[in-house]
């Protein structure tokens, strides 16, 4: 059965995050919270890296069940979005990520004081990537870079749980049609199944999100349909998890969210990186 390989230190898998860093990512995100899209996406990825590190932590350190790349694509370049000592690196073992945040911010958080009121407290927030936004959207080049990383990974780990590429963007590709590059990623396979490509489109104008659709109906334009067609179906364990989270799913449900607000960015990353069986 595909997508059932055990994820272990001797048989790890990888995540490749592709982050749109074009100028429009500096616009506000739709929804109630006042924040720019680039900040919402980088916060969500920093939070995910924190959660992954904690999830895989054991007494001896963080276990390398996953290797992770965060690739930014914008005006200046397509390449690693890590800051600090990881700057310039693509796929990095999770233990090195956990031990090398670029910095640790202190963020103010409001929590109940236990007596019906609210108090402010600070919480440390490890940061690996910062929000950057300028220029165009070289999505095709980013997908090609991801294909190269996934291809090399599968050559070195032929029995791994299939690699997952998660693309977070707010606009159309400015360097040509991305569909071929996307199909080239999905055509790669380990013995446990095809590599997965999930896409998330970040909203800037509000409107309701289309989350994990199973057909193109309800998608507003050809751009949304293109992203849908570029996205892999969710494997069974992710479908089950999405269903538990209250989404309507079918065998054709794709790893795709259109017009995402902050909540659906987090849900997309949570469901799209859900592991089956860590050993």
């Amino acid at each position: 059965m595909p997508y059932s390989a055990e994820i272990s230190r001797s048989n790890p898998t990888c995540f490749v995050f592709l982050v749109d860093q074009s100028a429009s990512m500096g616009d506000p995100i739709g929804g109630e919270v006042q924040s720019i899209k680039a900040a919402v996406v980088s916060d969500a990825i920093n939070r995910l890296l924190t959660e992954l590190s904690v999830k895989c932590a054991k007494e001896e350190g963080v276990r390398d069940y996953f290797h992770v790349a965060v690739i930014g694509y914008g005006h200046t370049s397509v390449g690693s979005a890590f800051g600090g000592t990881l700057r310039g690196l693509d796929l990095v073992p999770l233990s090195q990520i956990a031990d090398n945040p670029a910095r640790v911010d202190e963020r103010v958080k409001k929590v109940p004081d236990g007596a019906g009121g609210i108090v402010e407290t600070t919480k440390s927030f490890p940061v690996w990537m910062d929000p950057i936004y300028n220029g165009g959207t070289p999505m095709r080049e980013a997908l090609e870079l991801a294909r190269g990383l996934v291809d090399k990974w599968i050559t070195e780990h032929p029995a791994c749980f299939p690699p997952i590429v998660l693309n977070l963007t707010d606009g159309e590709s400015t360097d040509g049609d991305p569909t071929e590059a996307a199909a080239a990623i999905r055509a790669l396979a380990s013995s446990d199944g095809d590599a997965l490509l999930f896409n998330l489109h970040v909203s800037d104008a509000g409107g309701s999100a289309v989350t994990f659709p199973d057909d193109v109906e309800g998608l507003p334009d050809s751009y949304a349909r293109t992203l849908f067609e570029m996205s892999s179906p969710l494997p069974p364990h992710m479908r089950t998890y999405a269903e538990q989270e209250g989404f309507k799913v079918s065998d054709d449900t794709r790893g795709f969210v259109y017009n995402a607000d902050i909540v659906s960015v987090v849900q997309f990353l949570d469901i799209g990186t859900r592991a089956t069986d860590l050993r």
């Binding site: 924190t50 904690v54 932590a57 007494e59 350190g61 963080v62 956990a98 031990d99 640790v104 490890p126």
Partner: peptide, 8 residues
């Protein structure tokens, strides 16, 4: 303890 161990 490292930060991730403490959180866990």
């Amino acid at each position: 303890l490292r930060w991730y161990e403490q959180r866990k």
